[in-house]
């Protein structure tokens, strides 16, 4: 996983509320068996609208996306995160995120930044003309107009994102605890192990 420290660049000023994972990547794009190449299917329905932000040359290749409340609601498809990565988005800024999406984003090295609606409104304005600067270490979003917005992030997620750490590898270092838990469970609740025919 790519470590993420600072991200600076233009941002897609999407601003839409309740962007669900079907909008990010429609079901017809879920049929692959690898994680790559989904950027071309990202936001397909929105891109059918002339004047959409994704096809506006002004924002081409932006590493940041700014959206409305409840971003990533709906399905658990991790393809939504893979599609964003594939189109080059490293940071999504919104007032709130769905639980499943924010977990999927984190596991793929995408930083989700939750900021109040007023901050989002201001950033949407700035994004139309100027770049935005996100600093994970400092937990801040800044602009060249002296705007500075601090954000909260779970310390564990922060350190994983900064270090580009593999979560499975980290958990496997706890194998002894998992073994002990399983042993205990097997003796107390043996019926939890199903008899598979």
């Amino acid at each position: 996983m790519e470590p993420i420290k600072t991200v600076e660049g233009r941002a897609y000023p999407l601003g839409v509320k309740n962007v669900d994972t079907d909008m990010i990547i429609a079901a017809k794009w879920l049929k692959g068996i690898t994680r790559s190449g989904l950027g071309k299917g990202a936001f397909e329905a929105m891109r059918a609208d002339p004047g959409n932000v994704f096809d506006d040359p002004e924002y081409a290749g932006s590493p940041i996306l700014i959206a409305g409340d409840n971003f990533g609601c709906g399905s658990s498809r991790e393809h939504a995160a893979w599609a964003l990565i594939d189109m080059g988005v490293k940071v999504v800024i919104a007032p709130s995120f769905s639980d499943i999406f924010s977990g999927n984003a984190f596991k793929n090295g995408i930083l989700t930044v939750a900021l109040p609606q007023e901050a989002i409104d201001r950033l949407l304005e700035v994004a139309k003309t100027d770049p935005i600067h996100v600093d994970l270490e400092a937990q801040s979003v800044t602009t060249s107009f002296q705007d500075r917005f601090q954000f909260e992030i779970d310390p564990f997620r922060k350190s994983c994102l900064l270090g580009g750490l593999d979560e499975i590898g980290l958990t496997l270092s706890s194998t002894a605890s998992i073994d002990a838990y399983e042993k205990d469970r097997e003796s107390q609740q043996p019926w939890l192990t199903p008899e598979l025919a």
Partner: peptide, 30 residues
């Protein structure tokens, strides 16, 4: 799959996960 929530009907703590978490559960059962 996000509709894993269904199994809560039987009193199971059941929830949808993404593919990285599927891999995590397969490898670690946690």
């Amino acid at each position: 799959d996000s509709h894993t929530a269904a199994h809560g009907a039987l009193g199971a703590l059941a929830f949808g996960i993404g593919t990285s978490e599927v891999e995590h559960v397969l490898a670690t059962q946690t």
